[in-house]
Computed example of a mutant assay.
Amino acid sequence: MSDFLRRKSKILFICFFVLLTCTACSTPRGKDGKVKVDQIISSETIQVKRKDVSIESVSDPKLKKQYQKLDANDTITIKPTTFSQAFSTGWFDGLIVWPLAMLINKISSATDAGIGIIITTLLVQMIVFALTGKSQMSSQRMQEIQPEINKIQSKYRGKTDQESQMKMYQETQALYAKYDIHPFGSMLVMFLQLPIMMGMYYATMRAYEVLVGSAFGMRLATTPMYAIQHLMIGGIIVYILMVVSQLVSTMLPQWLKKWQDKKDNVKKHSYRESEQQKDPMNMNLYMYMMVIIFAFMYLNWPLAMSYYWMICSIIRIVQQYVMHRVMHRAEAK
């Protein structure tokens, strides 16, 4: 486990840095769990009830005092959010969160919030793939051959002499060349996907149509925990599907590789097999733990995020399967 984390320390540091930069914008939810009134992004003039929003972050003292005098069912008028207003709070809000939230609002106003999130997610994933298709292919190949990389590393475990380290490096590079993998190319995918992931998080939290909207009769502003406590079957199903689809999308490249090797009758060497299986098991345990940790986090996030992650994971599963087929056919030729 520690070897795996040490090998991935640079990538983890970069991910942490990007996330830290993106999350510099203020949290959209107040202490009461409601969306802050000045964080709502709307494409038209709207009215919200005082009881449905948080007013603790209002910077204008007079306006805040005025809101505090309102009764729970009194309404607050919010004007359309402009690009300049969003950009004034930070580049991340202006360039990523605002466009995504406005797109969700526009589509949802003509359909419903669920379809708005689905179409926005599809469009975003298509754009990201158009920009990083080759890098995603390389990243998936890396995931698929990870057990082979772990076997090479296990073969030289404990050998710290320069000759052994050079042989391990050469065998790893030969494996990369065999599958046409460019390890650093996957970083481009991370740099694009992480800000967009955080952008969708904030957009689904702040978009007005999601705040008041629903999908298949479920209010997306509620949380999975609330759905569990009140036995809301639809919300519980969405949450479970989200967790399962995330787990499948995380492990699918390895499963596809094993299935393909079995189909192609690829023979496995049995020597030192028990020792070589330690690293794959540790890596899989790490992946399972990450899914479990995020599953607990999602319990208190809006159901809109579970809905978004479910759609995103399903798209990723289809994408991974298609890329696997394309790569296998290319290798066969």
Rank of each mutant, 00 (worst) to 15 (best):
1 M>G: 10
12 L>T: 02
14 I>D: 02
15 C>W: 12
20 L>V: 10
36 K>W: 09
40 I>T: 00
41 I>R: 02
44 E>L: 09
45 T>E: 13
48 V>C: 05
49 K>I: 05
50 R>V: 02
51 K>C: 05
53 V>T: 03
55 I>C: 00
61 P>S: 03
63 L>E: 11
66 Q>K: 12
68 Q>I: 05
69 K>N: 10
71 D>H: 12
81 T>F: 06
83 F>S: 00
84 S>G: 08
84 S>A: 13
92 F>W: 06
96 I>N: 03
97 V>D: 04
102 M>G: 08
109 S>E: 14
110 A>T: 13
114 G>H: 01
114 G>Q: 02
115 I>G: 00
116 G>D: 00
121 T>Y: 01
127 I>Y: 10
127 I>S: 07
135 S>T: 08
138 S>Y: 06
144 E>G: 08
144 E>P: 01
145 I>G: 00
150 N>D: 12
152 I>L: 07
156 Y>Q: 05
161 D>A: 00
163 E>C: 05
165 Q>V: 07
171 E>R: 07
171 E>S: 06
173 Q>N: 14
176 Y>L: 07
177 A>H: 08
179 Y>F: 12
180 D>V: 09
184 F>L: 07
184 F>Q: 02
184 F>G: 00
189 V>F: 09
191 F>Y: 09
201 Y>G: 03
213 G>L: 04
217 G>P: 07
219 R>V: 10
219 R>D: 14
220 L>A: 02
222 T>Y: 01
223 T>K: 02
224 P>L: 03
227 A>E: 02
244 V>D: 03
250 T>I: 11
254 Q>R: 13
256 L>W: 08
258 K>Y: 15
260 Q>N: 13
263 K>F: 07
270 S>V: 11
274 S>T: 12
281 M>P: 10
283 M>A: 09
284 N>C: 10
285 L>W: 15
285 L>P: 13
287 M>A: 09
287 M>V: 03
289 M>W: 15
293 I>Y: 10
293 I>M: 09
298 Y>T: 08
304 A>T: 00
306 S>L: 05
306 S>I: 07
309 W>C: 13
312 C>F: 14
313 S>K: 04
313 S>G: 03
313 S>P: 07
320 Q>P: 12
320 Q>A: 15
326 V>S: 08
327 M>P: 06
328 H>P: 07
331 E>I: 10
